[in-house]
Design a protein around this nucleic acid. Structure first.
Lengths: 418, 418
DNA sequence: ACCCTGAGTAGGAAAGTTTCCGACCTACTC
DNA sequence: GAGTAGGTCGGAAACTTTCCTACTCAGGGT
């Protein structure tokens, strides 16, 4: 429920304090006891007690000593890197990528392979094979990995399992989760790839301290990863951010405004022969090819159009240009800004290039997996309810505070609830 | 709120438990001690202690007894209606409305008057005069009112004070807050009118248990009140929901898709003479006037267009049709649905009529004012940090998981490390 | 029809347990 | 020698369990 404090026995207090200590250590890196004491406001004694417990439960490590001050060396504490592992998977149109990370966020192993496009079973096999390989190389083994997050080019239901609309998955993604699940021992969570890119942007990129932003993923299709209040916004059934289908004057309804296909089409229209890939087109544009530049400009214009529409609805603090096509910020960014300034909304709109050029989806997936795995380990260790159940895994809890209650008389004995 | 548990002394536990008791009482209406004990999981003794404190602080009342069971009569506890009062104001284009509500949500007094349109000072005077009158009639006096929320037809900054774009305020709303502030003793909060209508919808209307919904306010202009995760979404600078400016094929950029002016224009185009108001137009349509019906249909079509665009961005659970024009659900709803089904997005979209036909903005404002006033009273009484800092009043507390952020502490007497 | 008794409930008080905090102490390093 | 890290002990705060009293309804006997 929305926000009730949970009442509880004194034990609750211990949980809370343990969690607070853990959080400080997590945030501020290796820390000595006195610093933890200052940061939490707890007493030395309590901090010591909490640390004893956390170390015993192996979520916190001693990590060397701090001899900066005079006096005895302070032992430093950190989150134990091996207290949780996460498995990130990026199922792309062409390739499958997998990474295993530890609780500290360190990438222990990474692997990739071509994506089998025949059927879901083959795809699942590829994923599990890569995962096993990675877990092996990471020295953990699959069993130690607490959570897997799998990025797919599809609309994913909020349960993190159902695939509602797959853009490039064999058999529309039918049976994919189940097949992968059979091959992997840990809990799985599916997630839209653009959403994961947004997570990566938030955690490793330019949006570290931005509460509301939108990642525009321009690639095979166009999608938006929407982060509001620091959390992914998925929509009622996971369909938020499907901005590729926003109405556009020059595009018929129900087709995508922008994407590889659309770009190719524009290239033909511009009189460019052959069937250059977007990559080649942008190369030509960089070489000064006028027609390619025209296509680039048209692309930028559509991006601007979409960004303006999004801004009118949710007004994020900024937009990030991502995706394979969006990565050509050198060519696109100026033009997008130009079009935005020229005919866009009454609101000023900021667009910046992605801060995660490589493996954005994979890194986002791995981060989220690590987050969940860690959260579970932390909860188990502190006895506290999970801290932030999820900046990307489950629905918001609905607000429960202060619902209207009709005025009720003090009539004895009647107890109507509705 | 986002994140960290705050560590603290044992006193914290008392706060937490007091708050839990208070919440249960608030949610479940008048309650006896045994029920509170069951609901919170606390022991009888602790509940008794908490209640003693809450009653002493006058946020909780004894309200009769419950003699349903056999045995001694259980005394019932409820939130004291007089522990906090809220003042709601709706500054409309034509009229100003004011209401005073108590902590139970009861409307104690309501008043309205024509809105002076000359200058902000006159408008402010009208507001304060009505407010004084209401507070008088309510028997509380202005000084007892803990919070005022003022709905305006404008984009309001997230601080709840700045007016960024006023649609129908004298002098663009310049100096309005300050002028009202001089006349009212309690803290003020400005809020966009459509946002308040959305709050009303959430609290009194059809969206009581809906986490994500959008209120489409169709009136003098077109705006959307966006509720995500049970909270108002205002956007980075309060500009979210300005969907009136969404691009529309048949409308030039920078002008509103829909609104009284646009409707009048369409009426002219349809060959309707005179300058019928939207109300008259809808009346004619009800009488079967073909040309008026055409205008209605065009209006519905544009509403559908806007709803489809919004849905592609945030995919709310449902849309609510509100506002003076939107209130003609009998004529509009079917047509909107028709157009949505015909050419809309890949997503199914649900549209329902408003459940708050009267005074939506005013009621939303009053609810929010009451909420803040109450929250403050509760916080003071329990010593706990505010429960839900705001389902509509201030920025999100910030991010949640795992990002650098100063820790908070509840311990006395040490210097704060932020 | 009336009364008496038994059972179940509300509320309170005392003893016990958990947890945090402040103060004091030791050991270590500059 | 001074300042700091870390540990231990007694005290205070807060919750729980247990016990106790008072109250009221139900049901059966008179």
């Amino acid at each position: 429920m929305g926000g009730d404090y949970l009442a509880g026995p004194q034990g609750l207090l211990r949980s809370i304090n343990a969690r607070a200590v853990l959080d400080v250590i997590d945030r501020e890196g290796p820390l000595g006891r006195p610093e933890i004491t200052r940061a939490t406001g707890l007493s030395k004694t309590t901090v010591a007690q909490a640390l004893r417990e956390l170390v015993a439960r192996e979520v916190v490590d001693e990590a060397g000593t701090d001899t900066a001050r005079r006096g005895p060396a302070a032992t430093l504490y950190r989150v134990a890197p091996r207290c949780a592992f996460g498995l990130g998977v990026d199922i792309g149109h062409l390739r499958v990528r997998v990474a295993v990370v530890d609780a500290a966020g360190e990438v222990l192993a990474r692997a990739e392979a071509p994506a089998p496009r025949r059927d879901a079973a083959a795809l699942a096999d590829a994923v599990t094979a890569l995962a096993s390989e990675c877990a092996e190389r990471a020295g953990t083994g699959l069993a130690a990995v607490g959570q897997a997050v799998i990025g797919v080019p599809a609309i994913v239901g909020r349960d993190g399992r159902g695939i509602r609309r797959a853009y490039g998955l064999p058999q529309g993604g039918q049976g994919l989760v189940e097949a992968i699940e059979r091959g992997l021992p840990m809990p799985l969570l599916l997630e839209n790839d653009v959403n994961l890119a947004a997570v990566a942007e938030q955690r490793f990129g330019a949006c570290a301290d931005v509460g509301d932003f939108v990642l525009l993923g321009v690639g095979v299709g166009l999608g938006a990863g929407i982060v509001l209040g620091g959390r992914l916004h998925r929509g009622f059934a996971g369909g938020a951010g499907e901005v590729g289908f926003l109405p556009h004057p020059a595009t018929e309804l129900g087709t995508e405004v922008l994407g590889a296909r659309r770009i190719a089409e524009q290239a033909r229209a511009a009189g460019i022969a052959g069937r250059p890939s977007p990559r080649e087109l942008f190369e030509s544009a960089r070489d000064g090819d006028e027609r390619a530049l025209a296509v680039v400009d048209a692309t930028a214009r559509r991006i601007a159009h979409v960004a303006a529409s999004i801004a009118l609805v949710i007004e994020p603090e900024l937009f990030v240009l991502g995706g394979a096509v969006g990565a050509n910020a050198d060519l696109l960014l100026g033009r997008v800004r130009h079009h935005l300034a020229r005919d866009a909304a009454p609101l000023p709109i900021t667009v910046i290039p992605s801060g995660v050029p490589e493996d954005a989806v994979l890194r986002g997936a791995a981060w989220l997996a690590r987050h969940h795995a860690r959260e579970r380990a932390f909860a188990a260790a502190t006895g506290a309810p999970p801290q932030d159940a999820d900046p990307g895994g489950r629905p918001y809890d609905t607000d429960s505070a202060g619902r209207p209650r009709g005025s009720r008389k003090a009539a004895p004995g009647k107890e109507d609830t509705t």
